[in-house]
Design a protein around this nucleic acid. Sequence first.
DNA 1: TGGTGATCATAC
DNA 2: GTATGATCACCA
Length: 227
Amino acid sequence: MSQFIRPLPESEAELLSLTQDIAGRSLSELAQRINWVVPPDLKHNKGWIGQLLECILGTTAGNLSEPDFQHLGIELKTIPLSAENKAKETTYVCTVPLLEHIGLQWENSCVFKKLQKVLWLPIEADPTLELGQRKVGQGFLWSPSEDELDILQTDWEEFMELISLGQVETITAHLGEYLQIRPKAANASVVTTGIGNNGLRKQTLPRGFYLRTLFTNQILQSQFVGY
DNA sequence: TGGTGATCATAC
DNA sequence: GTATGATCACCA
């Protein structure tokens, strides 16, 4: 094969064309293009698939807090599919602001910004399939509908209210219709500064916003309805 | 058995 | 510690 040249899609159409090109290809085939070794499993390489596809499609944001395709305002998200073609895992969105969020409006939130335009890339994740044999599915661009935005906003405002009242510790992953808040850290001993129940600063576990599989499955179904 | 809480890798 | 990328693993 010829040398792999990292693409830098300049338009949405170009990105969609690249997405079309990788649909149906296996992870080992894509890894080979850029001389990456397929790990035996994801246990110690949880972000491997996401990073592989970022490199294959030519994202530019690195670990900046910006959309993966900065100039296109598009965020890339892989989504692991079970054997029944349903989302296996929740989707991480961004870190929950626990302190510097006073007066923050929904429209200025990281959740709202991240979800403006997403390139969803379904990936086979049936555990009986060897990692390298798993195939990339049909990627598609998505933006939340008005109804979806309403529910996301309601969830977000409920969470931020609790946080500003110093109730972070009472938030469990059971709360929220589309969004949920769960720990987002290397381990349970990591701390960041938040607001305690006395209104004073308090060290607490960093948390992240995640999209429930209920919601991502809804997105998948609306995309592939009648397909 | 699936969802919640916990965890893994890496760059800076 | 923060950010990026997520999946693991246990228990209700």
